[in-house]
Amino acid sequence: MPTMPTATRYVVRSPAVVHETIDGDAVIINLESGTYFSAEGASAIAWQRIVGGASEADLASAIGERYEGGAAEIGAAVAQFIAQLSQDGLIRPAEPAEGTPATLPSPPPEAKATFKELSLRTFTDLQELLLLDPIHDVDEVGWPARLPSR
């Protein structure tokens, strides 16, 4: 049975997470994990709304105004998207005192596009920049020491 979107709002986990949106496409970087992401179309809109303080329910409503799709389908996609963002360490639930609820502008006048999904492209190829050195350890004094196994 589908669940109703909740009124929970979210905030970006800054300063660990930085992001920018250019011409409707979002670029998001998790500086803690070294993973980075891109979002386009409905997913970028969803990200911007979350950043702007939208609740899960606000978000489902905003997507429904712009895209053709069933409320249950969009609601489930929104819940899954928020779960992914949380799992990737990009957002966390807002405290009551944090931020203000989003005010949603009117939907665009053009015809609605067909809703497909909400997803991020995930890139992990730079995580090695943040990994602890696999060859060296630090000795008891505090200087680097080559690990005996290598």
Binding site: E20, I22, D23, D25, V27, Y36, L126
Partner: peptide
């Protein structure tokens, strides 16, 4: 797109 360039430069 500018976003694709940013994705190559920023991370």
């Amino acid at each position: 797109s500018p976003a694709a360039a940013l994705l190559a430069l920023a991370p």
